[in-house]
Design a protein around this nucleic acid. Structure first.
Lengths: 189, 189
DNA sequence: TCAGAATGGGACTTCAATGTCTCAAAGTCA
DNA sequence: TGACTTTGAGACATTGAAGTCCCATTCTGA
């Protein structure tokens, strides 16, 4: 595995630190400069340039990296197993866990548009859309909504929950439960 | 009324065109340059500078302008009248109507943070929070959620609905109904 | 320990966005 | 029509981020 990158342990660590810093810094401030990102990664600006020649190269790598992180988290949720409702709860929990990555990826629609071709989804991971359709067939998810809208709601609530925790408006440990409750039942009792 | 601004009809029109273009352009692309905004307003870049000396002056004016537009729309919804559930439906419809303004104001958290002091809310307009609390007292809105979280969900669903329509994923005429349904009942039947 | 790898910081260039200014052309209104 | 207003286009200076390069210092692993 690690041999495929042909990188020393040090380089790998530095690289990952920069990518993680890029995602979380840009999630919080989309106008962040490379200097900001380097500082967040506790790395010199010239070191950052050593790993990523220019801004777009960093962006692309950060997007791919974040996608993989989200994919890994979703894979662990095993959303093709068990009842759709329970699978959805695991999915929502998994997404809240990688909230900063999602905020980076989907916070600014344009970020993603410019780099769509730079990422090939892992087809072995069951998609959210599959789960939604399964749930609709099982009769537990609203059939009046399109799967795309439901997916949008999932992202949107997850992002809101992450952001609320970020601002201190919601306790970290309560985010997942709140998001799940809102997703399932809405706001009218 | 118009005399209070001491501006000719032409100047007023140009000013409003620039402010509207700023809000909608920045809502769609947060990195838009002043040249982009001028172009969207069908105005020369030097004309834009004639009205707004620098970027932050334009931002501030655009924020105030958008707030007023949202405030006007919310005022029309008369959310202190009638049952909370119906008032909320009117509020959601009103917010979808000014979706581009909301996307501009709340799309990038930092936009607002930098200019909080530039806007004094009109206290005569009942706030969303008031309506939420009233609804909770009436027993129609989820009491397990804080008013702040419910407000976040309102913004978030409204924004998602606007964005989906923007991308063509939802038909314009169906956005309001979809947002209301999702807000009230969530996704589990 | 010691050679090679990796880093930080600074000097420097490039570039795009911003902001200022002028002037001729077009528009407005009495 | 004619005075006055508003505008667009472009020249120009300024600024901050991006990107390149170098060198002394620190770190790592055999």
């Amino acid at each position: 595995m690690s041999s495929s990158t042909s990188e020393s342990g040090t380089r790998g660590r530095t690289r990952r630190a920069i990518l993680a810093a890029a995602a979380s810094t840009l999630a919080r401030d989309r106008k962040a400069t490379l200097a900001d990102i380097a500082e967040a990664a506790q790395v010199g600006r010239s070191t950052l340039h050593r790993y990523f020649a220019d801004r777009s190269e960093l962006m692309e790598a950060a997007i791919v990296d974040s996608f993989r992180a989200v994919e890994d988290s979703v894979r662990e949720a095993a959303i093709d197993q068990g009842p759709a409702l329970e699978a959805m709860r695991r999915l929502l929990a998994a997404m809240v866990d990688v909230g900063d990555r999602l905020a980076f990826l989907f916070g600014d629609p344009r970020v993603l548009e410019e780099f769509t071709d730079s990422f090939v989804p892992d087809m072995s991971v069951p998609t959210t859309i599959d789960l939604i359709k399964r749930g609709q067939e099982e009769g537990v998810f609203d059939r009046a909504s399109t799967p795309e809208w439901i997916q949008t709601v999932i992202w949107s609530l997850t992002y809101s929950g992450w952001e609320a925790a970020e601002k201190g408006e919601l306790p970290r440990h309560g985010v997942t439960a709140t998001v799940i409750r809102t997703f399932e039942n809405g706001m009218v009792t």
